[in-house]
Design a protein around this nucleic acid. Structure first.
Length: 418
DNA sequence: TAGGCCATCTGGTCCT
DNA sequence: AGGACCAGATGGCCTA
């Protein structure tokens, strides 16, 4: 019985991949330590059927490397896929029957080690080792294709797909890094769907904030009797974006400039503060001296500083997440989010676990124009453009207060797999 | 223990 | 022809 193993030297550095797995890293603890322990470099020697002794692993590692040259001629992007098995003609029979084509450097291939048969369990069972399709696809059905070549091709395809998914996950990790929620080792990572929902609404919120700022700037120009610029530029007097206060951000983790686009130099917390802060003093309002008072800087928050300073919420960068997150309200507003997602957000915002079990009663569907935001612990005016402008509400369905928390505005329904 | 989330394999389809 | 992308299937891990 052959044990198909794979030395995965895909272009994605699997070591770094494992170490970047965040909260799921523990899933791969064995693999990672295994890989590092045996010093096989980029080659992961994985047994799908049992645990190998250290000497066996080392031997197979050497054996695997020795077979690279003829098992796979794909030297591009270091995507060399090999089989460590005894891969002679007799073993092709085993491969067809058990077809453990590509045990992957994942937890289950090593830890489970017992049950997963990769031809029938992982993926569609197409019969055989799946090489028939490859044969057909490769247009070499008439040719006699060596099983080993087919295996190599299959492994190569699997590795590409694996790398593709790793890249996708890396992109999602990058997205999580710039999202306005707490990051940290003790914070559960947002799920993929939650990350996408949060990102979508965060973009909407930023866009709305930008529109709001444009409107205010436009009003300033208008009230000064100056012609409206076609594209209102930020007034030069606009104060620079605030730096995270040490009191607010006791554990700021520097973020590389490359991770944050220049266009988003305004921190998420700024935007959220902007959206949650009381209605900015209208530029039309005059001070007692009769002078036009500059509008309150959009980044300034009316949130009691004590709340901010006293908030021990950990965070990754750009200031602490500022949204208290009553879980019942969140659950009511976002039925699409699973308990897992809610729990992740709760941990991200340092919401007490007790809140998770809080009843839903008393939570009403808040109006976007509520002066007392039911989801917040301090009065929050409606900051939508219409309210700020006093022109009533348009039926655009895009109100800043609804977007005051990115996720709260996620009214879209996520069809979850049942 | 059930459900959620995830990684992986795999075949199909489309594109270059 | 080869690669990218997608979706179905499967099983492992974690949490409530």
């Amino acid at each position: 019985m052959s044990m198909a193993t794979e030395a995965d030297t895909s272009g994605c550095d699997s070591n770094s991949y494992y170490s970047s797995r965040g909260h799921s890293q523990h899933h791969y603890g064995f693999n990672q330590s295994h890989i590092q322990q045996h010093g096989v470099g980029r080659h992961h020697i994985i047994s799908s059927s049992n645990f190998l002794t250290e000497s066996e692993r080392a031997f197979r590692a050497l054996d695997a490397e020795s077979r690279i040259s003829h098992a796979s001629d794909d030297s591009e992007d270091n995507d060399k896929l090999i089989s460590v098995d005894e891969f002679d003609e007799s073993d092709c029979e085993d491969v067809r029957s058990c077809t453990t084509l590509s045990p992957t450097p994942s937890d289950h291939t090593v830890n489970s080690s017992s049950s997963r048969q990769y031809n029938s369990a992982g993926g569609r069972s197409s019969g055989g080792n799946g090489c028939g399709k490859l044969r057909k696809k490769s247009g070499i059905a008439s040719k006699v294709m060596d099983e080993q070549e087919l295996q190599s091709l299959r492994l190569k395809i699997n590795s590409r797909e694996r790398k593709r998914m790793h890249d996708l996950n890396s992109a999602l990790d990058g997205l999580r890094e710039v999202m306005p929620y707490a990051h940290g080792p003790s914070v559960r990572k947002l799920s993929k769907i939650a990350t996408l929902l949060l990102a979508k609404n965060y973009i909407l919120m930023l866009n709305s904030s930008l529109e709001e700022m444009k409107k205010l700037v436009s009003d300033i120009y208008h009230n000064h009797g100056q012609p409206r610029p076609a594209v209102p530029a930020p007034p030069p007097s606009l104060p620079p974006a605030p730096q995270p206060s040490p009191a607010v951000a006791p554990s700021v983790v520097p973020v590389s400039s490359s991770s944050i686009p220049a266009s988003t130099s305004t921190s998420p917390s700024d935007s959220t503060l902007r959206s949650n802060s009381p209605r900015p003093q209208s530029p039309r309002c005059k001070s007692q001296e009769g002078n036009l008072t500059p509008p309150r800087p959009l980044h300034q928050s009316s949130m009691p500083h004590s709340q901010l300073a006293g908030n021990p919420i950990p965070h990754h960068h750009l200031g602490a997440p500022i949204f208290p997150l009553p879980i019942p309200a969140l659950r009511a507003a976002m039925p699409a989010l699973s308990h897992h997602d809610i729990s992740a957000l709760a941990s991200a915002y340092s919401v007490p676990k007790s809140d998770l079990a809080a009843p839903l009663h008393g939570i009403h569907a808040f109006s976007p124009h509520d002066r007392m935001h039911p989801f917040q612990r301090w009065p929050v005016p409606c900051a939508c453009v219409q309210c700020l402008n006093g022109t009533g509400h348009l039926s655009l369905g895009l109100h800043l207060s609804r977007l005051s928390h990115p996720l709260l505005s996620s009214s879209n329904t996520v069809q979850r797999k049942s």
